[in-house]
Design a protein around this nucleic acid. Structure first.
Lengths: 152, 152
DNA sequence: TCACATTTAATTGTTCGCAATTGAATAAGC
DNA sequence: GCTTATTCAATTGCGAACAATTAAATGTGA
């Protein structure tokens, strides 16, 4: 019965990359919170707005593929954005199964107010841009490998 | 009015490390799901069990500090673990404000059944151990810098 | 045309995650 | 002893996140 060295024990919390990622995601969320409160957005709502600022008038499905989220998450979230007058939901006339999401004037305008958010996050990261880009690319590559396993 | 190159635009979704972390956390969760279903645990419940397998008979507060979660999250989660007969919640006699969490025999036994989980995750990551350790350390360092900003 | 599969959103129910509040227990100072 | 502040857990309410189901629209093949 070998006594495992805790620094190598794969069952130890601090040795798990998934917990590192999980807890880092929460840390990001907490840093974003006060910034996004001023915009009246939650972090997932902010992600949806980022997608729409790149291109709007898109079906819910497209937003979900971009963010890896399903309609069970997006439908109520989008209804809240609609209630906040940031987006408009319209059923497509070409394919009535689709609901198209378009920005309102307010939704477009919010992009300017949100312009300072990324640099605030960068400052909080206390890290060079190039280091962050490298890490981001590594994490994305890991995420894509994980997602590949899920679809078998 | 300069047209920003999208590969440099900080407001672009794919340029944001936080989205990389956020989406990687979800990807991990999806990989864990089938593995943890067999143990009857969710991922946050699994994290709590990891903490308790290292040391149990600890107050809720300690678990929260380890996982960066508060009692609003942990109280109902621990009640579900208690309902599953994996932990016992007892109010401390020394300080009656504290609730001590101890593993049951079933809770201890589950550690063996969970032993194969980390290696399944490693396989899904499709990545060398040393690469993962390096990434983990970088992500933890980033997380800790973010958490440092939150407390001002 | 008709039957059947596929696509797409919406809905329902369970679990996290956190802010804000409540309430109880403890500690500190007078 | 009394007041006050602090600590800690529980509670409440809201917003994700996802599985599973439902329902409608579309496409396909016989």
């Amino acid at each position: 019965m070998p006594r495992k060295l805790s620094t190598l024990d794969p069952q130890r919390l601090d040795n798990q990359i998934c917990f590192a990622v999980y807890s880092a995601a929460h840390a990001f969320n907490r840093v974003y919170k006060p910034l996004l409160d001023r915009l009246g957005l939650t972090y997932p709502q902010y992600l949806v707005m980022l997608v729409l600022w790149e291109r709007d008038d898109v079906p819910v499905k497209d937003i979900g593929e971009r963010l890896f989220l399903d309609s069970g998450t997006l439908t109520p979230l989008l209804k809240r954005l609609e209630a906040a007058h940031l987006v408009k939901r319209t059923r497509s006339s070409e394919d009535e199964r689709q609901v198209l999401i378009a920005l309102t004037a307010q939704g477009h305008a919010l992009k300017e107010k949100a312009r300072s958010v990324p640099q605030s996050i960068l400052a909080a990261s206390d890290c060079s841009v190039s280091e962050l880009v490298t890490m981001k690319d590594e994490i994305v590559a890991l995420r894509d490998r994980l997602n590949a396993v899920i679809g078998e």
